[in-house]
Amino acid sequence: MSLSVAEKSYLYDSLSAFPAIRPDGRKPYQFRPIEISTDFLPNSNGSSRIIASDGSECIVSVKSKVIDHTIDNDDLIKVEVDIAGQRDDSAVVESINSLLSKVLKPNADTLDTSKLQLTKKYSFKLYVDVLVLSSYSNPISLISFAIYSALSTTTLPKLVSGFDDLEVEELPTFHDYDLVNLELKSPLVFLLALVGDNLLIDPASNEYEVANNGLIVTWCNGKVTGPIRTISLNNFYSKGFDASLLGKGIKLVEEHANDVLQALES
């Protein structure tokens, strides 16, 4: 749905006013309602489906595989995004893929993958597959929420063989029934639109059209972490922004991320 020049101009003015007036009446830090369901794919170790009020929808599956980390020492979490209607090598898909791999990069502070180690030789590798069924704006934030929900409900087979297998090799064997909660908290990604001097969380597609710039902020375990990026949301209004807005943006996320987390957990 495209807006006319006059509409855009009106929208820009109201969004950059202080306080900003969003067309759907939200506060700058307010999210649109989302609907999340988890564990609906029994074949996967964890799954979630998230639907935004504009009809954007994304499905995440987490599957595990036992690997020999002495041979295969890639990251233990591998994420792949598939956006309906987009080729796998399209720019959107590739940029989201690369951003997500950075977000899910194992890191002792934010994403502690030591929980995935089974024995001295073997680990679980998690495959996080994201299917974006439909989206009307950049789905990165939605995806990160879906991944968070999927990972936090992921259960993995329970190891019953020994831990030390370096000298005398044992193949890991697992309990035939029990699954253990992984309890891995993945980072959340927030997308803010910069309009004038205002920062708007979770911009709707019409807000995209007039944003001067976009800011991607990653948040994990109570604090903002990397990657933090800017992203151009349209071709017409894009321009630079005041460095102080960056700090403001981070602060906004720090203030409200916990609410989002609580909403996701409930």
Binding site: L156, P157, L171, T173, Y177
Partner: peptide
């Protein structure tokens, strides 16, 4: 259930 085979585990 979980099937352990050749070191792998499949749900």
């Amino acid at each position: 259930f979980v099937r352990s085979r050749n070191g792998g585990a499949t749900k």
